[in-house]
Structures are given as structure tokens and as C-alpha cells.
Amino acid sequence: MENFEIQAITYLSGELQGKERLAFEKFLEDHPQFQEQFQELSYTWNQMDQITTPEPSKGMDNRFYKMLSQEREKNARKSGLQAMLASFTSMLRPVMRPQLAYGMLLLVLGLGLGYYLNPGKTQETDGAQVVQSAETEEVREKLVLTLLEQPSANQRLQGVSEANKFGKVDEKIIEALLQTLNNDPNVNVRLAAVEALTQYVDNPVVREGLVQSIVQQESAIMQVTLANLMVALQEKKSIEPFKKLIRTKEVDGKVKQKLKSSIESII
């Protein structure tokens, strides 16, 4: 028999069942030399049954359960840490999404680039603004001068209102406004010029110009306006021109009365 070794062990261990078992028994009956071998094996195999195994001590159980509880604690600590880590990761997860990450990256890059370029730019911009505002003033000045020379009263009015927008007024503008005040054919334009010049009464040239303008005004409304202004300014130099107006025949009687009362208020 080719697989006698295997068959014998299978038989002894009880794994050989049914027909195979019977076939093996028949084989042994037919082959005395194998039967002898098998009996020797069987005898030794059965002798091994006589060995007994002692019981493990209680100490083994104690050591095992101590180890298990330590392991359980370690595991609990670890899972606590893992839970913390997991919640932290879940908090971070939206941030870690690629689209958002790219967005954040771009934002940071933009901020960084902006911060890096900002100081130089600001200085440049300040300079540019100064230059720009200087240029604007110049253009506006030219615009005012041009507008004041226009034949249309509307445009001249626009010119006067443009002149109001200057922070610091130029002598040329003052001159142009005084010119308008004395010579403009339209009374509204002249009134607007008075109003515009009122802003610069601290300037002696303006004050002088206004005083000298009194005698040149033929319109009653202009005379009264200037009279009010002079009273407000308490400009004593204006007394003489007013007296001169009063002596003029063409001046309206009521205006004369107004001028007289103005002179009295100034004195």
C-alpha cells in the first residue's frame, strides 16, 4: 500500500470513516506484515492515552484577567484619543476639501502679494494723487477762466460755481471773479460772483476789490447785497463808496436809505 503511513494515522486518529475504514481493515487482514506494523503503531498510540495533564492554577486566570483589563484600559484611552483625533479631522475635513483648499491658497497668495506690493504702491498712489489733484486744479482753473468768458450767462454761472469748489483760490481766479462782479452784464452772474468772493473775504485783495466794486454797481439788488456784506464785514473802507452812491441821482431812494442805515451800522 502506497499510503500506508497516511492511512494508518488517519485510522488511528479516527478520521477514517465508512468504506475507507473497512477497506483499510480488509487490507490489514490481507497483509500480515502491515498488520504487524499497524499493531505496533496502535500500541504506542494507545500508550500515549495514559498521560494525564494537570490543571492550570488559579494564578494563570488572575494574570490573564489582569492583563486583559490593562489592555482594555489602554484600548479605551487609545479610542478616546482616536475619537478626539477623529472629531478634529472631521472639523478639518471641509477645509481639507481640494476646492476649498485651492480657494484658501489663492486667498492667502493674494493677501501675501497684496501685502508685499502695498507699501510701495501706497506711496506712489499718494504721489500720484497729489500730482493728479494738482493737475485737476489746473484744469479746473482753466475751465473757470474759460467759462467766465463765455457769452452764455448760464456758462458763466457755471464758471462761478466751479470757482466755489477750490480749496485755495488762485489770484487769477480772484481777478476773474472780480472782473465778472464789475463787468458781467447779467445780474445773476454778478450775484453769484459776490457769493463766491464772500468765501475769500480774509484775502485783502478780495476785500479791496469788493469795496471798489460798490460804485460800479448800477443794479439795486447788487448795491443792497454789497451793503449787507460790508455791514457783515464791518468794512469801514466801504463808507466812502456808499456815500458816493447816495449822492448819485440814479440810485433808488429805498436803496439810498438802506445804504445810509448800512453806513450807520458800520460806524
Binding site: N3, E5, I6, I9, T10, E40, L41, T44
Partner: peptide, 28 residues
């Protein structure tokens, strides 16, 4: 079972049986 013993020893079931057979002979 020898199929399991083979798995423990890292060999085939048949090889485990042959080993057992030789072990019994040695023991005798």
C-alpha cells in the same frame, strides 16, 4: 484534525500524517 495540524505546522495534511507516523515509530 490533520487538516488543521497541517495549517498549524505549515505543511499539507498528508505531510502532517507522515510526520505523525514517523513520530510514533520513533516513540516506540
Amino acid at each position: 484534525k490533520y487538516s488543521e495540524i497541517g495549517s498549524v505546522l505549515g505543511c499539507s495534511e498528508g505531510a502532517a500524517k507522515v510526520k505523525a507516523h514517523r513520530a510514533i515509530k520513533d516513540l516506540r
